[in-house]
Structures are given as structure tokens and as C-alpha cells.
Design a protein around this nucleic acid. Structure first.
Length: 511
RNA sequence: GGUCCCAUCGUCUAGGGGUUAGGACACCAGAUUUUCAUUCUGGUAACACGGGUUCGAUUCCCGUUGGGACUACCA
């Protein structure tokens, strides 16, 4: 096997969406597995779609998920530059070579010429009007025009494009690593523009030239490229690079959960979950799209989740670190069908990774949230809180959001619970419990529990019956972490105070 | 419309000519927990349809249907 060299080649047209991250991930896994190189190349041949900040976003996103780049943007390497706009001078040579060996030609048609041609074909009943082996003989190009006229047009600086001269009848075969043999007849392919009139190459040319020059061994990209892959095969052939043609692997698309269409940038935040790795603000529209990072996803969890979208190891193991993914990954086990993604599964992965963290790391999360809120807390207290909340947390921010009542006494109470659990028995027990607590010196969770048991026993009321009411008075809600632990963390005085407050404010409810 | 790709529980998927079609998420129920959750146990739920090939097809072939992608001087 020749050296594995793969590339991730996004266009800097905005935030990198999650499907792009998955494509990058699969490339990365293959590179690492075979001790190859991961290259980051920027395909910015369309100057009009360039979005400021997109390149930086791509780099930050890859870095965040743990995909490291060996060669390319921001890193450099033997095939620099890695931004296609900066490679502009290199492409004409190859386009010229194609013209010289008769596989491409100059075309001088204006936009109006092209529109007219399409109109003409449409009215003639042609289903898909194309610039191809049949129609090119009616257009203004170096095939139809006399050699002298072409020369003078060129020397006069007339705008032109270079088009690939696709053969009339030829079966183009492509062996895709995921899909097997794919065959397309050349009559279905139009004479694609290779060089645009602004002197920039189109994707097709730039892609093939760069992949060749950069010695790319595997092209792993989204399925949206499959229809143009035969065209690329043709280019390799005409450029004389057939022997060095990379292997292709076209990944199944990521679909919207609703099932209609592929996940696209415009879906951002439309479905209640992020589709970008990081928050992104479009510099042109100021529109904000939220990211997985800011939503509380851990990068390891996102990677694990993404890896399983269209690939599986063939075993029942689901939790894999990046290193483990590298060792078990294989292109053969990538599926063919499009994949909808279920945010529940992503949350589940996140929860698994969150639980695997040490209490100390979790305390760091809580402390960070508290700092952001301007709330003081000792590490000792944070550790206690984290322990009682961790079994129900999905995101790091949950420690603060679900533990808020440990810092601020409730001022309102869940009405449903009030209606159901706040009754005479509860009031009796809570009043007696409050008095009994006064005798406790430095109560721990067990002391709270014993005291409560004694009180309920004396009053002849089952403890379980009033626990919800006690929880309500202490936290304001009907659900939450272990109540005895909550009281221990709060301390006797605070508990006494809160029960007093609840007794006072919920008095009317029962009358 | 044309070309290409795809098709197993709601979702992600394993599997493969003879299986009780397996797992995970989600959902539901029970057990444990004096509360909440965790945990444990169990459950509902799938081979799109029609033809072939075959002793036998969910699996192989063809067609239909359905879904998706592409169809720019965008990538």
C-alpha cells in the first residue's frame, strides 16, 4: 500500500457544519491508522463566496474536536501553499496541457449566448440542456472558430473559459471504496468549465491537480460529489495521471431528522439542536448559529457520536476514545445509506463521557459556571454538589442549572407539587422537624434522616408521605438530588430557615 | 424531467440463503431506592412491494415504489 495521504478540503464559505466535521474525522482516522498524513487544504476558488473568518473557524473547530493537521493551512508543508487562491498560477499549465492534447478547448460564449442556447434546447424539447459533444459545435469556441480567429481573440484579451472536451460515447468506470463499481456514460456529462474567465480554476480542475500534486492517496468526501467523480476520473486520465489516481470513498450524507433532504447550513437552530461545532456569527448577516461546544457537548463525545454516524465497528462496543477509533476504524465498515441524526443519542454519548470524569473535573465545571454567575463557592462544597448531581447530569452546565437552589433559597414553589403534597400532615411534620433540627449541633445526612424519622414516628405519619413536601420547602421543586445530602450541604441553619419560609408562605394553600 | 446513489425496529445499526432477525438510543412496565435520579429486569417495535433463481429468500438477480444527491464560469 502506498503512503496514506488524505485531505480535508473545505470551502471557507461560512461555518463548517457537522457533516464536514465527520468527513474530516473519517479522513483523520484513516491517516492515523496507517501512519499517514492529514492535510488541510482550503478550496477558495470562488472569490465571491469567501466569508471572512471561516478559515479560522475551520481551524478552531478541528482543533476543538481533536483533529490535528500534519500539513496544510496554518501548518505549512512541502506542497505549500495550501490555499487554492494562492495556487492560482499553477493551474493554467495543466489546463493548457489539456487544450494542447485536444482534451479541452477555449470557449468564448457570453452569458447571453449560454442562456440563448439553453432556451433553444428547451423549446426543442431537450430535457436537460447541456454544453456537450453535440451542442459545442454550435457555440463560439476553439473547436468551431478558425485558428486565426481564436488566436486574435486570445491576444485581444477576450474573456474565455476552458472547457473539458468530454467524449461522445465512452463508459467511465469508477471503483468507489464504499459503493463498488459505479458506471456513467460520458454522454451524461457536460463539457465542464475547468478554468473560469477570472483565471481561477473550478473545483474540478483544482481538486484533481492538487490531489495529484499533493500525492493524495484517498479521497474521502461526501456523496454529493459522486455524480462528478467520473469527470474527475476523466481528468486524471487526460492529464496522464491514471496510475496515481487516488482511491475514492463517497460518504453517505447526513440527513435532517425530519427525513427530507440533507442537513444544510440553513437548518441551523431550526430543529432545536446545533449543527455546527462552535458558535458562529455570520459577518455579513450577523446571524448567530449555535455550536455543540457552547451547548455543552464534550469534544470526545461529539467525536464518538459522529464516528458512529455511518460507520460501526461490527461489535457491540459503543464508547471509543479517539485512539481506539483509530485502531478499529476501517473504510470497509462505512455504510451506504444516508443517516439522520438523533440528538438523543448525542446526549447519551455526552452523558457517558461526563460520568466518566473525576469529581475534581466535574467540580471544575461547576466552579466555572459559578464564576460566570458571580457566585462564591469553595472547592470542598463544589465537590459535594457534583457528587449528588452527576448521576442526572448530561451537560457540564447542568451542575449549576440543577444545583442553583443550593446557593439561593427558593422564592417560589412548584405548584403541582404544592397541590399534591402540601397538606396538614406535611405541615405538622415540617413544623416539628424544624424544632427538632434546632437540637442538632453539626448534622450530617444521617442525622437529618434520623431526626426526620423520629419526628414522623412520634406523629404517627409515614416518612415517605411528607418527603416531597420537605423537598418542596427546601428546594422549591418536586424532583432533584438526594434530599438528605442536599440538607447536609445546606447546613442546619439554612434548612431551618427555608422550612420556616415555606411554612409561612404556603400557609394559605391549605386553609 | 435526466443521470447516479440508497432501502433491516421511530432513530443509529449488526447479520446474512435455513436465525426465536441481535445490539444501542428513545419509549413503556416492574424491582430496588422511606423522595428524585441512578441501577437492574422485562416489554412494544423492523427485513418497503412484486416477480424471479432456489428444496428454501429478509439475504442473490430484475422490476416497482419510496428517499436522497447531482444537473452553475458554487464548492
Amino acid at each position: 500500500m502506498k503512503d496514506v495521504r488524505v485531505r480535508f478540503a473545505p470551502s471557507p464559505t461560512g461555518a463548517l457544519h457537522i457533516g464536514g466535521v465527520r468527513t474530516a474525522l473519517y479522513n483523520y482516522l484513516l491517516a492515523r491508522k496507517y501512519n499517514g498524513k492529514m492535510i488541510l487544504r482550503i478550496e477558495d476558488t470562488d472569490q465571491t463566496r469567501y466569508v471572512h473568518g471561516a478559515e479560522e473557524y475551520i481551524q478552531r473547530a478541528l482543533q476543538w474536536v481533536g483533529i490535528t493537521i500534519d500539513e496544510g493551512l496554518g501548518v505549512g508543508g512541502p506542497h505549500a501553499p495550501y490555499r487554492q487562491s494562492e495556487r492560482k498560477p499553477m493551474y493554467m499549465e495543466y489546463a493548457q496541457r489539456l487544450v494542447d492534447n485536444g482534451n479541452a478547448y477555449y470557449a468564448f460564449d457570453t452569458e447571453q449566448d449560454l442562456d440563448a442556447m439553453r432556451e433553444r434546447l428547451k423549446t426543442a424539447g431537450v430535457n436537460s440542456p447541456q454544453y456537450n459533444s453535440i451542442t459545442r459545435i454550435q457555440m463560439r469556441n476553439s473547436i468551431t472558430l478558425p485558428v486565426d480567429e481564436v488566436k486574435s481573440l486570445l491576444s485581444a484579451g477576450t474573456p474565455f473559459v476552458i472547457r473539458l472536451k468530454v467524449p461522445r460515447k465512452e463508459e467511465i468506470r469508477l471503483n468507489d471504496l464504499i459503493r463498488g463499481w459505479v458506471m456513467v456514460h460520458s454522454s451524461q456529462i457536460d463539457d465542464k468549465v475547468l478554468m473560469k474567465s477570472d483565471g481561477m480554476p473550478t473545483y474540478h480542475l483544482a481538486n484533481v491537480v492538487d490531489d495529484y500534486l499533493m500525492k493524495i492517496s484517498h479521497v474521502i468526501r461526501g456523496e454529493e460529489w459522486l455524480p462528478s467523480a467520473p469527470l474527475h476520473v476523466l481528468l486524471y486520465k487526460y492529464l496522464g495521471w491514471e496510475a496515481d489516481m487516488p482511491q475514492f470513498a463517497h460518504l453517505p450524507l447526513l440527513l435532517k431528522p425530519s427525513g427530507d433532504g440533507k442537513l444544510s447550513k440553513r437548518d441551523a437552530d431550526q430543529m432545536g439542536f446545533p449543527i455546527f461545532p462552535l458558535d458562529w456569527i455570520d459577518p455579513n448577516t450577523n446571524e448567530k448559529a449555535s455550536g455543540f461546544r457552547e451547548a455543552g457537548y464534550l469534544p470526545e463525545a461529539l467525536v464518538n457520536f459522529l464516528a458512529f454516524l455511518g460507520w460501526n465497528p461490527g461489535t457491540t462496543q459503543e464508547i471509543f476514545s479517539m485512539e481506539e477509533l483509530v485502531s478499529v476504524f476501517s473504510v470497509e465498515r462505512i455504510g451506504k445509506a444516508g443517516t439522520k441524526f438523533d440528538i438523543h443519542k448525542a446526549q447519551w454519548f455526552n452523558q457517558q463521557y461526563l460520568r466518566a470524569k473525576s469529581d475534581d473535573e466535574l467540580a471544575d465545571f461547576l466552579l466555572a459556571s459559578l464564576a460566570g454567575e458571580g457566585v462564591d463557592c469553595t472547592r470542598e462544597k463544589a465537590l459535594k454538589i457534583v457528587v449528588i448531581i452527576k448521576e442526572r447530569a448530561i451537560f457540564p452546565k447542568d451542575f449549576w442549572e440543577q444545583g442553583r437552589f443550593l446557593f439561593f433559597a427558593p422564592t417560589s414553589f412548584d405548584e403541582a407539587v404544592v397541590n399534591k403534597k402540601w397538606n396538614d400532615d406535611a405541615i405538622k411534620v415540617l413544623g416539628a422537624f424544624r424544632v427538632a433540627l434546632s437540637n442538632l449541633l453539626s448534622p450530617d445526612a444521617a442525622a437529618f434522616k434520623n431526626t426526620l424519622d423520629e419526628v414522623t414516628h412520634q406523629l404517627g405519619i409515614g416518612t415517605g408521605k411528607i418527603l416531597q413536601a420537605l423537598r418542596l420547602s427546601v428546594t422549591g421543586a418536586g424532583a432533584g438530588p438526594d434530599l438528605m445530602m442536599i440538607m447536609e450541604i445546606l447546613g442546619r441553619d439554612e434548612v431551618v430557615k427555608r422550612i420556616g419560609y415555606a411554612l409561612e408562605h404556603l400557609k394559605l394553600k391549605v386553609a
